[in-house]
Structures are given as C-alpha cells and as structure tokens.
C-alpha cells in the first residue's frame, strides 16, 4: 500500500455514511471533502460558493440539457467535472484525504492509496435515523430517502461505468445497521489499517 491514503465513501441516504466519513477523517487526521469541496474551488477562483452548491451532486437533466462537440449546457455536469478535476489534482499532488460521494471511487481508481467503501443500511434503521435527524414523519423520511438515493444513483451512473452501490465497484460494502455507526467506524478503521500494512 502506498503512503498516500484516500478513503472514498459512497453512501445510501440515512445510512450514516457521512458521519462515518467524518469520524474516519478525524481518526486518521485527514481532510474531509464533501460539499465543502466547492468552498475550496470557489475560494481558489474567487467565485460564489453558494451558487455552485445549488448544483452539487445533482444529476444532469437529460431533457433540458444538450451536448455540442463535448460542451454540455448542463451546469450540474460542468460543476461535477470541476469537482472531479479538483479531486484528481489533490490526489495527483500526493494529498491524503477522505471524500464523500462525488464518484470518487471511479475518478481516483488509478491511485494505489485509494480505499473505496460503500455504506448501506436497512430501510427501517435508515428511516428511523432520517426521522430523528430531520424531524420528519415516517412517510416523509421514506420519501426523502428514496428521492436522494434516486438522485445519487442517477448522478453516479451518468459519470461512471460501474453502478452506484454495486459491491463489485468498491473495495468494501458495509451495512451500517448491523454494527451501528460507531462500531462500523471501528471496523473500517481496522480494515484501513490492515490495508496500510
């Protein structure tokens, strides 16, 4: 394993994947890139981060966008490519980091230091978590989960050959409902340390 460590976390909505990514970043002392990635891009280019965030991890609308000679009218697609390029630049500079979503398991697959993880969960457990975190009723929580996962799947599958959530696409797929978030993090930490040996 190379000295560089890049942990990519794909996740189902409500599975706690983002919290797991935060905890792993803290345990390994790494930077965490999620939507804050656009803050960095905005700062670098003197842009308005809030404008960019409207298009963060949003799938391309196939009917209302067009491509001409490789140029896409989809702002979602162009912002996605800005993020992919940013991640590739960071990885090429030898940086170690944790990245949530953003097709990182595919975009950074050429780096030996990449460990790709997908976090899933049981529907009842995820629903309960979404209800608690967002203060929603069960029906609303399920609707929110389905909508987010549908969007993540469309977003991912547009840019990558491998399908979103398909275990063949990741080093490790883990159901966070089995061990709970904290013990899932423990397990992943030991797995990553094992990989680093």
């Amino acid at each position: 394993m190379s000295e560089q460590l890049i942990i990519s976390i794909g996740r189902e909505f409500g599975s706690g994947g983002h919290v797991i990514a935060e905890k792993l970043a803290a345990r390994f002392g790494l930077a965490l890139y999620d939507h804050n990635l656009l803050d960095e891009i905005a700062q670098e280019k003197e842009l308005d981060a809030e404008t960019l965030k409207k298009y963060d991890e949003v799938p391309r609308n196939m009917v209302f966008s067009r491509t001409v000679k490789g140029f896409s009218s989809s702002s979602e697609e162009n912002i996605a490519h800005m993020q992919f390029d940013f991640l590739k630049r960071k990885a090429a500079a030898g940086e170690s980091f944790v990245v949530v979503g953003r097709c990182a398991e595919t975009m950074l697959k050429d780096y030996n230091g990449l460990i790709s993880i997908f976090v899933l969960g049981d529907i009842p457990v995820k629903t309960a978590r979404v209800m608690e975190v967002y203060g929603l009723r069960e029906k609303e929580a399920r609707f929110k989960m389905e909508r987010h996962d549908r969007h993540r799947k469309m977003y991912h599958n547009y840019y990558c050959k491998g399908k979103w959530g398909d275990s063949r696409n990741y080093d490790l797929s883990i159901n966070s409902s089995r061990l709970g978030i904290e013990r899932t993090v423990d397990f992943l930490e030991s797995y990553i340390k094992e990989r680093q040996k």
Partner: peptide
C-alpha cells in the same frame, strides 16, 4: 433557451466550467 442553439450550449458550458453556472 439554453439548449436552443449550439452557440448557447457552448457559451453556457465555457462559463459554467469556469464556475459561472447558468440556470434555465
């Protein structure tokens, strides 16, 4: 519209690649 002509698509693309997204 943003998709009506090739020039629109290219102009919008060049702008949004530099961080100036254009919504419908």
């Amino acid at each position: 519209t943003p998709i009506g002509a090739s020039a629109n698509v290219v102009g919008i693309s060049v702008a949004s690649k530099q961080g100036y997204p254009v919504s419908w």
